[in-house]
Design a protein around this nucleic acid. Structure first.
Lengths: 108, 108
DNA sequence: CCGAATCCTCTAGGATACTG
DNA sequence: CAGTATCCTAGAGGATTCGG
């Protein structure tokens, strides 16, 4: 879901470019509750591979939604947290969460 | 973005399953202003191929977000409109639209 | 512990041509 | 006009291994 310019200028679709990855909403939503280490996120999403997790985190960082803190220790420690831009998605997530709860999860 | 069950129960992600296709938000957003014919949608989204448009419409119909009316005339006429479930996404779209306008479209 | 490096699979999405 | 029917490709996503 990289930015490409060949597209329609649809505000809704442009938002999707940022959060449209398969795991991005899950990651961002999880980070809502505060700073998390790489391993914590990985545990929380058992079905994601390390590579993909790294990828998605990189894209989120590139898009300015999350912030990466790296401690040069042994063993290494890396922490991810939401930037202001990332936090500004909370209204979007709130509505998406409501809709998902009402119309999907509580439906089956 | 078909429904698969192997995933986390994340409300936000489950919503994405419904609107996560490349063109789905654009289509749904356009249908907000009322019932539209296949051709009208195609014109509105010039860069989409007929096949893909058909695909996305089918999935949206399967997911209960849009309703398809088919008139057995020559030449054929087909009209798509939002279902109640589709309309219930308006809050989600509103927030996504706001965010996209503020943080993407008006940023560059 | 974190993640870079490979290699591989799968499918969403695209180009084009044909039909009732 | 509104689709099918083929064929094709890029890239998202996955499994595994290696390294600081």
């Amino acid at each position: 879901m990289t930015n490409s310019n060949e597209d329609i200028k649809c505000p809704v679709a442009s938002t999707l470019k940022f959060i449209g990855g398969k795991w991005k909403t899950v990651i961002l939503y999880y980070l809502t509750s505060g700073k998390k280490r790489f391993g914590e996120i990985a545990v929380r999403i058992p079905t994601i591979s390390r590579k993909v997790l790294t990828q998605q985190l990189k894209e989120l960082e590139r898009d300015g939604l999350i912030f990466k803190e790296q401690y040069k220790e042994i063993p290494p420690r890396v922490e991810y947290s939401l930037t202001d831009l990332g936090k500004s998605l909370n209204l979007v997530f709130k509505e998406m969460s409501n809709w998902g709860l009402e119309n999907v999860l509580n439906k089956k």
